[in-house]
Structures are given as C-alpha cells and as structure tokens.
Amino acid sequence: MSDFSGAQETERWLWPLFATALFLLFWRYAVIWTGTRVFPSPFEVRLGLAQLVEGGVLWRDIVDSIRRVAIGYFAAVGFGIPLGLLLGWYPSLNQIVNPVVQILRPISPIAWIPVAIILFGVGDHAAVFLVFLGAFFPIVVTCVDSVSNVPLIYRRAGSNFGLTGPQLLARVVFPAALPQILVGLRIALGIGWLVVVAGEMIAVDSGLGFLIIDSRNSGKRYDLVVGAMLLIGVIGLILDVLFRRLETIKRIRWGFRNEP
C-alpha cells in the first residue's frame, strides 16, 4: 500500500482510463484486421446509440425494463424477507420447507417462461413474474442464513432484558442480521436485472432485452446489439452503486468493516 500512496489520487483515474482506451483500441483494430462486415467498431456503436436516442425508442425501452425489475423485485422483497425471517427463526420449519426451496432454486427463471406465458400471457406480467422468481429464492436463502448466523450472545442479551418472540426478532435478530441481508438484497437486484433482459428476449416485445434480439433479427444491426449490451451494463452498474450507498448508513455500517 505504501509503495504508491503518494500518487494514489491520480492513479485512481489514470489506470482505468488507460485500460479502457487500450480496450477500445484493441476492439477497433480487431474489427479492422478480421475484416468483419457484421461486428461493429466502437465508433459504429456510438452512432447506433445516437440514432436510437434521436428516435426516442431507447428511452421507452429503458423505462420498460426498469419498471419490470422494480415491480418484480419489490414483490420478491415483500414476500421473501418475511418468509426468510420466519424460516430462519424457526429452524424446525426451515427443515421442512428447505428441500422444496433447494429443488426450485436451480431451475433457471428462463425455464419458467412457458409456464409464465400460460399463467400471464405474453406481456409485462410474465416478465415481472420471471424477475420475481429470480430474486425471490436468493432473498429467502440469504434471510435464513443471516438469521441463523446471528451470534448467540446477542439473542441471550436480548432475552435477558425480557424480550421474547416477535420482540426479540424485531429488536435484536433483525438488526443483527441486516447487514448480511442487505448484501443478499443487492445480489438479488443484480439477478433481477440479469433475468429481465433474458426474459425480454423471449416473452415480451419491448425493453432492452427485446432491443437486442429485435436488432439482430430485423436486419443484423449488430451496432445496436452491442450498444444495448453496454447500456444494460451501465444501468446495472448504476443500480449496484446506488444500492451500495445504503451500506454506509451508520446503523448498518458495522457489518461491513473488515476487521472482526
């Protein structure tokens, strides 16, 4: 750490810029050398994106994707946290339910698409349902884990002050588990964002995922494909960064320090 502590401030900007520039250059010359007619250069991607912005379609696609994620994700949070806390609180109940969760969890949300379409038809509801499925199981599993990881010492201290049942859960176990739960919620948001794009490629006809598949199918517009991918990356990154802000709240920050 000490070897470049003096230069750290500038290096923080310099190295990423350098690497990104190198990456773009490599991309550009790779396109030129391979002589591909289909795969776009960075410059073409930029033109394609500009074209989409002018057309006004892009904004609608972004809003559609985010709306689907928001609804599905909040539904998953709303059902997943209470269920997870309940299962973490009553280990005997968890033993009963856990095998079902473990079987459902490895099923790709995408594999639910035929079922989602039967239940909800092609459209928003199907995509929202997929996001819900993708986020729900990780949230439940994290809650169960983080509740059972709460040190015995905190539970004892809480019950020593006369807390029982729901009070102990609300005033001791939940705050003690919160940092770990938040990490799980952030990961689940990331999964929701992965799933919505995939879902839109199949089950609906708007959104960034649809933009990708549509750009390819109608005229091999690979500049738009790559442009949409970059947008998906940037928006996902922004969601992640916003969520990380929560982790700096004082009541929670203790859980994110490195030392024991």
């Binding site: 040190p151 010492i153 905190y154 004892r156 201290a157 001791v172 705050p175 003690a176 919160l178 009541r251 929670i252 203790w254 859980g255």
Partner: peptide
C-alpha cells in the same frame, strides 16, 4: 458478556 455483547447497531 465481554464487550462482544454490545449491540453494534
């Protein structure tokens, strides 16, 4: 407890 029993939140 040792000081570990203080609630960090």
């Amino acid at each position: 407890f040792q000081e570990r029993g203080v609630f960090p939140w």
